[in-house]
């Protein structure tokens, strides 16, 4: 079984968010870039599946300019066998999914994080499945290989399910898929330098959405403090002033 893990290159989750050019673009000056946290968990689970057998090859893929290569190298250091970068800026979910569809055809399991932590789109995995006309399972919190099939744990609104799906399939994964993201070891980092990172040319793709402008949320009023021994007053304020109890 061959696995493709989709990797988004996102600002570190502690980044202070700023915008530039009249609030029409994210200001990436001084930003540290990381593997999108959910993609990192997906990759960790893929590596675990390979370690227990049943998975022969893991590829990681990203749509982006050469500036995303350090993030792909990190994914290789975590344990992917090779990497593909489609050489075009990621602007819109449909554009990204269209690029990925050209390289995703030969994989049995395609894994994507449930969203990217920058623009919170939750779109690329599902779009890719529709473009490839294959199954997709979302909100996946567990996966194992069962012969030629895959067994998924999926969260539904109000519970959970165990599903069996025939490959190929896109799994859109969330928290729980792996316990903790794997940190690359020194040996992995050394080996990653020698692994193949293939750059492919983009196809022409339509941008179906575009950002008009950004804004920061309004500043919150100061917190109203209550004394430690006066929880009763807190409950009264929540009941009478905030009217939420």
């Amino acid at each position: 079984m061959k696995i493709l893990v989709l990797i988004s290159n996102v600002p570190d989750t502690t980044t202070k968010i700023r915008f530039k050019a009249d609030n029409t673009a994210f200001d990436d000056a001084g930003v540290q870039w990381i593997i999108n946290p959910w993609d990192e968990l997906a990759l960790t689970r893929a590596v675990e599946l390979k370690e227990v057998g049943g998975v022969s090859h893991i590829t990681v893929a990203n749509v982006g300019t050469s500036s995303t290569e350090p993030t792909l190298r990190k994914a290789l250091a975590v344990g992917a066998d090779d990497a593909i970068r489609v050489d075009v800026e990621a602007r819109d979910a449909f554009e990204v999914a269209t690029q990925l569809a050209t390289i995703a055809k030969d994989y049995d399991l395609i894994m994507a994080g449930i969203e990217a932590s920058d623009y919170n789109g939750s779109a690329v995995g599902g779009m890719l499945a529709e473009l490839l006309d294959i199954a997709s399972v979302s909100a996946v919190s567990g996966v194992k290989v069962d012969g030629g099939n895959l067994i998924f744990n999926r969260e539904i609104d109000g519970g959970s399910q165990v599903l069996s799906v025939t490959t190929p399939v896109v799994a859109i994964v969330q928290k729980g898929i792996a316990k903790e993201p794997r940190i690359p070891a020194m040996r992995g980092i050394m080996m990653a330098r020698k692994k193949e990172l293939k750059v492919v040319a983009p196809v022409s793709a339509e941008d179906r959405t575009s950002f008009v402008k950004f804004e920061l949320p309004p500043k919150k009023a100061a917190c109203k403090m209550v004394a430690e021994d006066n929880a009763k007053e807190l409950v009264r304020l929540l009941h009478e002033e905030a009217k939420v109890l």
Partner: peptide, 8 residues
């Protein structure tokens, strides 16, 4: 942050 997005 918030974003305004145009659907084309």
């Amino acid at each position: 942050a918030f974003a305004e997005v145009k659907l084309n």
